[in-house]
Design a protein around this nucleic acid. Structure first.
Length: 603
RNA sequence: GGGGCUGUAGCUCAGCCGGAUAGAGCGACGGUUUCCUAAACCGUAGGUCGUGGGUUCGAGUCCCGCCAGCCCCGCCA
């Protein structure tokens, strides 16, 4: 939709900005003429390999052509300017020119230690909070009333929650909206069918249980597809409902309550907070949507339906595709609701949310739908100039066979069953391990650890993959104790907790830091990357970047743990290393918290 | 027919406004435990980045064609 400027996303944001300014100034001093036209971009980036230092600047290569000079000569001139700048030399070791003309920058160790010390005892671990922000809407999960949550809701729920957590941590007021399917044709079908088959369900709470309701829904859908008379009755029922008919409304309310309670069980289990604001919420605004579109001259009546024809999107016959906002029978559809939602979310309170960023976490199959709806909203003038409206698409959940995930019987996998199995498998693993290691733990410990590991595995496996591709679901892989998995990360935290139990003082706020080993410096550098990673996730809405970071941090920590003694070290190394352990644990806990994953002390 | 997404090592995947010899995990093979949980660590092997062009000093990354898989395409959401 709107295209904001891409932010730079390196390690250590503040230092990055500082270096960038130094480089730009040095380049300008070295080549004043080159700055006359375009602003100079030093093309500063995180070093692509550790041996290149902390940062690399690639700008000299790009200047070679306009300046008609060899890139290494340009780099040399820039470096000479940098070396003459004492505020730069206080920050960095002398830059090195490498390859065709890269400028490699290595931060002074004392500066790294200084940055690290500032993060010790800082609850935000160096991640800045935004000063003030308009609300951000994250629209995710969105199951349908009268259906059970299934594997199809997994990704939206987990990814949406994580994005919301990251945005909240950055200080944005986040509206976590559950746009449940509680309106529309499906309800017409269901209510019509229930009137005939189980009328008590429409007047008495919980007269049928949810499983039966799901079965009724399936039957209703089948009748709707096959029986024209039923279709017509269902459509009339929708119109009645949308018109506020009390009998229909009561039935509708009962169905919603029942489903809502079931959804909440799963949200509680996954520790996900959501505000329900279903499609029905926008019912009072649907007329205004159509009126607005009419007033702005976008509306066309075609074959009885009121549509907006899209620009640049052609159908089979080469004519523009419509977005239908009012059906021939007078009813509204999901496009109308989505438009009303966009309009409401960007509108100022009290008749709106006043949001300036609206994020939809839905499967990639809806990309075309959202593109169309977004275009209409833009042309209708409902999107403020500085606002962002983003569809965050994700791929399908597939089985290991590469096909859409199903049960052995061929049914959709219920979310509840999927979580149960993950926890059961985690528990079986844990019990086997306890037996092998001749450890003894009480049942409460086993239940807690297995639940945490099982749910963490499901969440992490999903989040750690770039969401845009299809996702191959495998219990074996996600619960593996090695590799880029939740158990591996959880274990790193457990190791640090072990050090604390064995006498390591983790209250390290005032510690003098003295590092000598490469494993220590490796960990220091990794720890300082957190702020950049968070900024990147906030901008690109890709939780897998955070996962990659946490995995790499765990790897670097495990190497450190394996190769460098902590408790047995002499001072001042011991305290410095304890500080690293403490900050690593804090960083992992914070990062996993942003993924919606709690950590353990022992496992 | 039109549109979108995807195609990188045997498998699952990273690859951040184009930048140095394309990375990781799993699996395979080999090694490490008197020491803070070995659920770990160290090493080896393994890739024409689907394919053919183009742009560029430089392309897995940008543009065009083609191939393959998946998804979407007016009154369902």
């Amino acid at each position: 939709m709107t295209a904001p400027p891409r932010p730079t996303t390196p390690a250590m944001l503040r230092i990055f900005e500082e270096l960038n300014a130094h480089l730009a100034a040095a380049t300008q001093r070295a080549f004043p003429a080159a700055a006359a036209g375009q602003p100079l971009d030093p093309q500063l980036a995180a070093a692509s390999k550790p041996e290149f230092g902390d940062f690399q600047a690639n700008g000299a290569l790009a200047l070679a052509k306009p300046l008609k000079q060899a890139p290494r000569a340009i780099a040399t001139a820039i470096v000479n300017q940098l070396n003459a700048d004492t505020s730069f030399t206080a920050l960095c070791l002398p830059p090195e020119i490498a390859g065709p003309g890269f400028i490699n920058l290595t931060l002074r160790p004392e500066r790294l230690a200084h940055e690290l010390r500032q993060r010790l005892g800082d609850p935000r671990l160096g991640v800045p909070s935004v000063a003030a922000s308009a609300p951000v809407v994250v629209d995710f999960s969105s199951p349908n009333i009268a259906k059970e949550m299934h594997v199809g809701h997994l990704r939206s729920t987990i990814i949406g929650d994580s994005l919301a957590r990251v945005l909240e941590f950055r200080g944005h007021p986040v509206l976590r909206l559950n746009h449940v399917g509680d309106w529309g044709t499906q309800f017409g079908m269901l209510i019509t069918h229930l009137k005939q088959e189980a009328p008590e369900a429409l007047s008495t709470a919980d007269a049928v249980d949810l499983g039966d309701l799901v079965a009724f829904y399936r039957q209703a859908k089948a009748r709707f597809d096959a029986d024209e008379a039923f279709q017509a009755t269902s459509r009339e029922e929708v119109v009645k409902l949308q018109g506020g008919d009390p009998v229909s409304l009561k039935a509708w309310g009962l169905l919603c309550d029942q489903s809502r309670r079931e959804f909440q069980k799963l949200y509680d289990r996954l520790d996900i907070r959501l505000n329900e604001r279903g499609e029905s919420f926008y019912n009072p605004y649907l007329e205004a949507v159509v009126a607005d579109l009419e007033a702005s001259g976008l509306l066309v009546t075609d074959d009885g339906a009121r549509c907006v024809f899209l620009e640049g999107v052609l159908g089979k016959d080469g004519t523009p595709l419509p977005v239908i906002v009012q059906k021939r029978d007078g009813g509204f559809n999901y496009a109308t609701t989505d438009l009303a939602a966009i309009r409401y979310r960007f509108a100022e309170p009290p008749e709106g949310d006043g949001a300036r960023r609206v994020i939809y976490v839905t499967d990639a199959g809806q990309a075309a739908h959202f593109a169309g709806v977004f275009q209409v909203a833009a042309r209708a003038g409902w999107i403020p100039k500085e606002a962002r409206l983003e569809h965050v698409p994700f791929g399908l959940v597939q089985g290991v066979d590469g096909k859409k995930l199903k049960t052995r019987a061929g049914d959709t996998v219920r979310l509840r069953d999927l979580l149960d199995e993950a926890v059961e498998r985690a528990e079986a693993d844990l019990r086997r391990r306890l037996q092998e290691e001749e450890r003894s733990e009480d049942e409460a410990f086993i239940t807690h650890a297995a639940t945490t590991v099982g749910l963490a595995a499901v969440k992490y496996a999903d989040l750690s993959q770039n969401r845009s591709t299809n996702y191959q679901f495998s219990f074996d892989r996600m619960l593996a104790l090695t590799g880029n998995t939740a158990p591996y990360l959880l274990y790193a935290v457990v190791r640090i907790a072990g050090i604390a139990r064995k006498g390591g003082d983790m209250a390290t706020a005032g510690t003098e830091l003295h590092f000598s080993e490469p494993q220590e410096w490796g960990l220091v550098r990794e720890l300082l990357k957190l702020d950049g990673v968070i900024a990147e996730v906030e901008e690109e809405l890709l939780p897998n970047r955070l996962c990659t970071y946490l995995f790499e941090l765990s790897q670097v920590f495990n190497r450190f743990y394996d190769q460098v003694p902590v408790l047995k070290a002499a001072e001042p190394a011991r305290s410095s290393r304890l500080a690293l352990c403490s900050l690593t644990a804090d960083t992992l806990k914070l990062g996993m918290g942003l993924l919606g994953i709690p950590t353990l002390e022992r496992m």
